[in-house]
């Protein structure tokens, strides 16, 4: 390669490498501030502030959703299956809200582990399948449709789906 071009190649590599190092340092400095929400374990560890607007996220624990009669008020537990946060909310829930489904709630922590939400968002997982496949999975005892959320290392139960 021509020496001048070689030098320019080094400049190009320097730009890309320099920008990468700068970005890495910025994101190292920000660390968990980059997260959209606190997990129930973070909240149990006391990492989340009290009486400040913030977000918590996790799975809606199965069987924990309680409605107050005809009112819009609803109580449920958000869990990461290690720790729990009790959430109360008054308002319209998104269509995708369901037990065993991921949610991100915005609101304030009024006491340790107690959360009053002003907004509830449903978190979708990365699984897509036709309803028949999901029903077949449930019949065979795989909970393919009922899990979901953050962990990508979670056993998906999807390998079984390809049999149908």
């Amino acid at each position: 390669m021509h020496p001048v071009r070689k030098q320019r190649l080094y400049i190009v590599l320097f730009i890309v490498l320099g920008a990468s190092i700068a970005a890495a340092l910025i994101f190292y400095a920000l660390r968990e501030n980059m997260n959209l929400f606190y997990s129930p374990s973070d909240i149990a560890d006391g990492k989340a502030p009290l009486n400040t607007r913030m977000r918590a996220g996790g799975m809606v624990r199965e069987g924990s959703v309680q409605r107050q009669g005809e009112a819009l008020e609803v109580n449920f537990i958000v869990t990461d299956y290690a720790n729990d946060v009790a959430v109360s909310y008054e308002g319209i829930l998104p269509d995708m809200f369901a037990e065993g489904q991921g949610v991100v709630v915005t609101g304030t922590q009024t006491a340790p582990g107690v959360f009053v939400a002003t907004e509830v968002l449903a978190k979708h997982d990365e699984e897509y399948m036709p309803p028949e496949v999901s029903e077949a999975l449930e019949k065979s005892g795989h909970s393919g449709g009922e899990t979901g959320g953050n962990s990508s290392s979670r056993p998906s139960g999807y390998d079984a789906a390809s049999q149908y």
Partner: peptide, 19 residues
Amino acid sequence: WFTLHQPATIKLTEPTTMH
């Protein structure tokens, strides 16, 4: 990071989680 957006469905190294 924790995001509202779900992880990738189509991955190069793992089987896809889509029918």
